[in-house]
């Protein structure tokens, strides 16, 4: 039931147009951070207000909406964002990746391959990949405009000299179409290769930092690395305990108070669909 006190998807039409312009600009300049006038949303910043505003701007009444948080549809955060759009936009919602036309996500990319009919919206806490070594915004902007990205490799160098390998495992920086260096939001680096050449549109929204960036379909996305320390999309070296999948990103769960643990798919929809199709892992009941 749409709550009639609000415009469709909560934001007024003018605000949505402003956000759509930022999105279009982002799509035209893949990986470039477009400033936008972020609005107050009826939820705290840490809850993905950037993603929510982007979703609000792209949703239509015919869309089917899915929200994932760390791979799951049923966390408090995911449920409240899904409920928010059920109430303010009256759109259909789903937990099935294949049935969704707009998917808002925090920290994961679904395991199922996405299609040209889909839009993936990422919630972004810190959009600037150069921030940690160069705190001055004026300087990072100049570095982007002049393609001065040596600093990104200084970070990876420090990683290797400290840990013997590139220890960065989330928010692993990428180069987009050989031009902009981009923060993929805190997804595990296991997901990085999925961003490349993806059929779906990928939109990134940072609410507190007021930035939107985007990857149009089939964009070249390369994870930064060294020749002698090549990028690896690593994951826990186990099959899923529930569905037996060998190719999915796994969460490690502590299952009892004697230190017993098991590995299960972080993408719950993927795992449940596999189990329904008869796949069984070693820990499945």
């Amino acid at each position: 039931m749409t709550d009639q006190a609000y415009n469709f998807a909560y934001l007024d039409e003018q605000t949505k147009r402003m956000i759509r312009r930022a999105i279009l600009k982002g799509l035209a300049i893949p990986g470039y951070q477009v400033p936008f006038a972020s609005r107050e949303m009826p939820m705290p910043y840490g809850w993905g207000t950037g993603g929510v505003q982007v979703s609000a701007a792209v949703l239509t009444p015919d869309d089917t909406f899915k929200v994932i948080d760390q791979g799951a549809d049923d966390t408090t955060n995911a449920v409240s964002i899904r409920t928010f759009f059920e109430r303010t936009a009256g759109v259909a919602t789903t937990t099935a990746t294949a049935d969704a036309s707009v998917i808002q996500t925090r920290h994961r990319i679904p395991e199922d391959q996405l299609s040209e009919e889909q839009i993936l919206v990422y919630q972004v806490p810190i959009p600037e990949p150069l921030r940690f070594l160069e705190p001055r915004e004026s300087e990072t902007r100049k570095m982007h405009s002049l393609e001065e990205y040596g600093l990104m490799h200084v970070k990876l160098y420090e990683d290797i000299s400290c840990h013997g390998h590139i220890a960065t495992s989330y928010a692993y920086p990428v180069r987009v179409e050989g031009r902009y260096v981009m923060d993929p939001s805190p997804i595990p680096k296991f997901d990085n290769p999925k961003m490349a050449d993806m059929a779906a549109i990928q939109l990134f929204g940072a609410g507190r930092e007021q930035r939107i960036y985007a990857l149009p379909p089939y964009t070249k996305v390369v994870s930064l690395d060294f020749e002698d320390h090549p990028f690896e999309a690593s994951k826990a070296d186990h099959p899923c305990g529930m569905c037996g999948a060998e190719d999915s990103y796994l969460d490690e769960l502590i299952v009892d108070d004697t230190g017993g643990r098991m590995f299960v798919c972080s993408d719950t929809d993927y795992c449940e669909a596999r189990q329904a199709a008869g796949h069984k892992g070693k820990d499945a009941a």
């Binding site: 040596g150 600093l151 200084v154 690395d225 060294f226």
Partner: peptide, 11 residues
């Protein structure tokens, strides 16, 4: 840093 800035990519 300067080596990486001019494109060296072999750690």
């Amino acid at each position: 840093e300067r080596l990486m800035a001019v494109g060296e990519r072999h750690y």
